[in-house]
Design a protein around this nucleic acid. Structure first.
Lengths: 228, 228
DNA sequence: AAGAACTTTGAACAGTCGTTCAGTTTTCCA
DNA sequence: TGGAAAACTGAACGACTGTTCAAAGTTCTT
């Protein structure tokens, strides 16, 4: 115990170096997950990118799951930071715009285009619960922004839950087609996404063409309760 | 050879029954893939839902991959049929609206909410190539609709590629939160999606708030060439 | 009712991969 | 420079799971 305490404080920058290495491992893992997905990625794949045997990874993470978990923790942290920034803006439209553009930046720059969001179900037990809780917090906050926008009249009356899912789906899907070094800058991508996804919440410019003879009033008024 | 030919034509409705069973297997597989993803799904999981041992599946599909592949083929077929329907509509906005709503219907009703699109990389070799080719055809067609809308002035001048990715991302993500039996009808979900995603391509209702001092004209004019 | 065709089964195999661990190499500090 | 701490390795294990196959069970046809 005394030894452990002594070892812990022995040298601050040893611990720091270890953290840097952990981060390297995480990024190598993210790149591998992007190519093959979590389950199809072996520890050998990750280790190979680092010029190391897979057993070396166990000095930094207790198991494969933990690598994915740490990636999620970091990503969620960044997203929450974005939310905090957005809260300083006035209008719901600006807030939503900011969150979208910042989220796009996280997807492309921080996560290197990795499909982290796809791999939540790959986490097991307690870890999955924690990540899901964080994700739910984030989604709830986005929903609130939209609901305030609806109340303020800047957004069309819409199901906020569905709108948030549409927005996050579009963003998460970036992992499937965007690659670093593409012609499209992340800033421009973010801008186009926010134009598209925030703009789509505004009042409908044209009256919707009626496709069926049913009167529009017959449209059910239910608000969704999406299970899960 | 003669025997094989005779067996093939022996009875038409035997073949039909076999097809029905294949379809049952596919749907059981889809449900399993939804819960755990392709790689985390074992043949035992699929077989268990059918009250059968996993070896029985080999009478219908040569391997696990083939089950996923057949699901993809069917889904792509439906999507192409939707495109054909859309082509009969006049305006690009209506076409896009129709394709989106029909695609949402495929996601929820046909595919039972299964994340098929997530599992393209799980396919191997030749099969993956075929599915990717089909998907690319679909995406290209959507892009054309948007480009015509831009030329016609009903859509804002926007990068069609990015817009299509945003739309498909939102739709594919449905698999991650929608569950059969939810309060939201698939028709209503489709309508809200098309409102959101088509509406977002219209002219921006409000002038964009300038966040940085850089003049908007400085925005690069490049069209994206997303790698892959 | 009998035989053929179809369907399902149980056992077994083979390859993959996460994980453990004792020991070696490297790095760092006194 | 010597010794401790940290980083890494190689070998091996064990569980899982896709796949094969010969045989048993079932369904259908004549």
């Amino acid at each position: 115990m005394v030894r452990a305490a002594a070892a812990k404080k022995s040298s601050p920058h040893v611990h720091e170096k270890r953290e840097r290495r952990k981060s390297e491992i995480q990024h190598a893992a993210l790149r591998a997950f992007r190519e093959r997905g979590y389950h199809a990625t072996t520890l050998d794949h990750i280790a190979e990118q680092l010029g190391v045997r897979k057993t070396a990874l166990y000095h930094y993470f207790p198991d494969k799951d933990a690598i994915l978990f740490e990636c999620h923790r970091e990503a969620l942290g960044e997203l929450e930071r974005n939310l905090a920034e957005a809260r300083r803006l006035k209008s719901p439209a600006d807030q939503l715009r900011h969150v979208i553009e910042a989220h796009v930046r996280v997807m492309t720059e921080t996560l290197d285009g990795s499909p982290l969001a796809f791999e939540v179900p790959s986490l097991s037990g307690e870890r999955q619960r924690e990540v899901v809780a964080g994700r739910d917090r984030y989604e709830r906050e986005l929903r609130r922004i939209i609901e305030r926008g609806v109340r303020a009249g800047v957004f069309r009356d819409t199901d906020a839950k569905v709108a948030v899912f549409a927005i996050l789906g579009a963003i998460n899907w970036i992992a499937r087609w965007w690659r670093p070094g593409g012609a499209l800058s992340t800033a421009e991508l973010g801008r186009q996404f926010s134009d598209h996804l925030v703009g789509g919440l505004g009042p409908l410019p044209r009256p919707r063409l009626v496709r069926s003879p049913k009167p529009r009033a017959a449209r059910p008024r239910t608000r969704s309760k999406a299970t899960s």
